[in-house]
């Protein structure tokens, strides 16, 4: 298991990197953390002719809070976030999702943006950013910067809206807002495996207890993170009794795959169950947040 040959570039500036992508297009692959790309190369399932190693780009590992968001630079490792209490506190959903991402040893190297760009439909971080309604910053030398809403970024299995001359330079995760509660639930075969089904949930409560927003996303049930249409449940006071119905609604239009890890109906049942758990926890944490406001 050795990679096929490739030309190797290690740019020292983003402009250099973008110029390489513009030049080589499809032939080139960006190497960041490498925790998904290098295994695929070792198995020769991926055989890029050109590797653009972005690990030496200056200041690309920045993690900062700005304008109500947590901005994560392209080289920020997953474990960098885990080591930043401020960041975890800012985006509680990320704090809950990160321990499920691979293993500590792979999170030390794997990047947040790389996981988004890789777009595995079972991966945790794409699911989290979709539910939070975050955005991905893409840049190319020809067209400069554009922000892609997370909901538009993921297109299918390992497919994103990214053009082949573009690179993900950062991602923006909306920070915790007043009255919001968050929950992440996952079921996997073993600790650290890709999810069979994962659920991320964010609920916003008005001080009067009315749910102003109910966002719930499912991973592992489609070719990309699936955001359930739950607007019908907004503007209502939600009680524990409503949650089974919401969970059922959340999975109503999914058509999960059948494979080695489970049948479609198993995934649907898991999704319903995890959705209910996530709703319960998100609602509880939103209530706590509201109580905090009230005091």
């Amino acid at each position: 298991m050795k990679p096929a040959p490739f030309d190797y570039y290690c740019p020292r500036s983003l402009d250099e990197a973008l110029a390489l992508l513009a030049q080589y297009g499809d032939e080139a692959k960006v190497l960041a953390g490498g925790q998904s790309l290098v295994p695929a190369m070792n198995m020769r399932l991926a055989r890029p002719g050109v590797i653009v190693d972005v690990n030496r780009l200056p200041e690309a590992a920045v993690i900062e809070r700005c304008d109500g968001s947590l901005r994560v630079g392209m080289l920020a490792r997953q474990a960098d976030l885990e080591r930043m209490p401020v960041a975890l506190d800012a985006v509680p959903l990320l704090a809950q999702a990160l321990p499920h991402v691979g293993h500590w040893q792979t999170r030390n190297r794997g990047t947040v943006c790389g996981s988004l760009a890789h777009a595995d439909p079972s991966a945790e971080l794409p699911l989290a950013i979709v539910v939070l309604d975050g955005a991905i910053e893409a840049r190319s030398s020809a067209r400069g910067t554009r922000w892609i809403a997370a909901g538009q970024f993921f297109e299918s299995y390992f497919q994103t809206a990214l053009q082949n001359d573009e690179i993900v330079v950062g991602a923006s995760f909306p920070a915790r807002r007043e009255g919001w509660g968050y929950a992440f639930e996952e079921f996997a075969g073993r600790h650290g495996d890709f999810a069979i089904v994962a659920v991320a949930c964010a609920v916003a409560l008005e001080p009067n207890g009315v749910a102003s927003e109910v966002r719930l996303g499912l991973g592992g049930v489609a070719d990309k993170p699936h955001l359930a249409p739950l607007t019908a449940y907004c503007g209502r006071v939600l009680s524990q009794r409503d949650l089974p119905e919401i969970a059922n609604a959340a999975v109503a239009d999914i058509e999960p795959p059948s494979d080695l890890r489970g049948s479609a109906r198993y995934r649907r049942a898991l999704a319903t169950n995890l959705a209910q758990r996530a709703l319960t926890r998100a609602l509880a944490s939103a209530r706590t947040a509201c109580d905090g406001l009230a005091q």
């Binding site: 075969g189 069979i196 890890r261 489970g262 049948s263 109906r265 198993y266 049942a269």
Partner: peptide
């Protein structure tokens, strides 16, 4: 006895996984 196989056993109209 992987989870999905056990779960399928619990379903009323069980099919072998």
């Amino acid at each position: 006895l992987v989870p999905h196989r056990v779960w399928e056993m619990l379903q009323p109209n069980a099919v072998e996984a």
